[in-house]
């Protein structure tokens, strides 16, 4: 850790590693990797590394948005549906002859717009985050069903879109979705760490009353958090439509659960005020590596669901343990986990 003195002992350094945020989760990833590489040597290969990276993209983009919302003390259950609907927007517009770039921008704008609707319902009408985004979860999905009339959008792919969707790789192993996800992570990390909006997010999430008293516009910060989440879901939708080459009405179903799981594994708290961009990456990596390892190791699909659930539990328990340890070592108080200011109660 950066606050260690230069003359720190080995023991101090070791302790710093064990108590650093996400150390528990990282140890789970390492364990899974060891297990998988014993079962099959191909697990540790450049090719598989990029498989995992390309599989992480969509959940990572949603998890970044989810992390922002969670930090602000909210939760966004609509991201999977919004991602699916935005994929539908870009596909349908391209079928109707709208140029690709315009269609993509409109789809991302649609995502941001739906996020803004979420935010407005929450801040202006005062509905709980859970309820408002649950409604959007249903509305966005239902709209896609109505719009497609159950039949997938097809025949919108162009040569460029194959590259955008990552199905063609002009830059070696790196695909456009991976590059976009890297950029998004960087932007979110910088925003959270170095901008007033980032600081306000943490303030609003951990103590909204205090933030308000110090002059932060709490509704505006929360609204912006949902816009970010919707926008990232829009970006994910644009990329996903390029990867699936067809937009089925159920596209993106269940992704909100993965996004929440990834954010939580990465250390974001449902009670708000906590979470980092790198945490979203680590959380998503945990999910992707676990699924990839189990597929390669040949774990029965029936067991995969159980194992994924247990890994989630283990990651969070280890995270709590390292937080506890840190509080003893560095003497900082533990963040309240089940604080009474839970998002849903506001």
């Amino acid at each position: 850790m950066s606050f260690l003195p230069n003359n720190a002992t080995v023991g101090q350094r070791l302790r710093a590693v064990v108590t650093s945020p996400n150390s528990g989760v990282v140890s789970v990833i390492v364990l899974v990797c060891i297990f998988a590489s014993i079962k099959s040597s191909v697990f540790i290969s450049v090719n598989n590394g990029f498989n995992i990276a390309s599989q992480m993209v969509f959940i990572l983009l949603l998890a970044l948005g989810m992390t922002i919302v969670l930090i602000s003390g909210g939760i966004d259950l609509s991201v999977g549906s919004v991602m699916g609907l935005c994929a539908g927007v870009v596909a349908k517009l391209m079928i109707d002859g709208v140029p690709m770039v315009v269609a993509m921008l409109l789809a991302v704008a649609a995502g941001a717009g739906l996020g803004m609707v979420n935010g407005l319902i929450i801040t202006k009408l005062g509905l709980p985050d859970f309820v408002a985004t649950l409604a959007m979860f249903g509305v966005a999905r239902g709209l896609l069903y109505l719009w497609t009339a159950g039949t997938p959008f097809l025949d919108y792919m162009t040569d460029t879109y194959f590259i955008v969707g990552g199905l063609r790789r002009p830059f070696g192993y790196l695909t456009v979705p991976i590059i976009v996800a890297l950029l998004a992570t960087l932007i979110v990390a910088v925003t959270l760490r170095f901008t007033p909006f980032g600081r306000h997010l943490y303030g609003v999430g951990s103590n909204s009353h205090g933030a308000m008293l110090s002059g932060v516009s709490v509704p505006r910060v929360r609204l912006l958090a949902y816009v970010c989440s919707g926008l990232l879901a829009g970006v994910a939708g644009v990329l996903l439509a390029g990867q699936t080459t067809a937009v089925a009405p159920d596209l993106g179903t269940g992704y909100e659960v993965y996004a929440i799981a990834a954010a939580i594994i990465g250390g974001a708290a449902l009670s708000g005020g906590r979470g980092r961009a790198i945490g979203a990456v680590i959380g998503t990596l945990t999910l992707a590596v676990t699924a990839n390892a189990m597929n390669i190791a040949g774990v029965d699909p029936t067991w995969q669901q159980v194992v994924t659930g247990l890994i989630l539990l283990l990651s969070v328990i280890l995270d709590r343990a390292s937080t506890l340890l840190r509080s003893r070592v560095v003497q900082i108080p533990i963040q309240p986990v089940a604080a009474t200011t839970a998002a849903t109660a506001r």
Partner: peptide
């Protein structure tokens, strides 16, 4: 592999299995 009847999951699961 479990593809959950969805195209994207079918893609990722196959990608994993093809590695092996």
């Amino acid at each position: 592999g479990n593809g959950q009847y969805q195209r994207n999951t079918g893609f990722t699961v196959t990608q994993d299995l093809l590695t092996r």
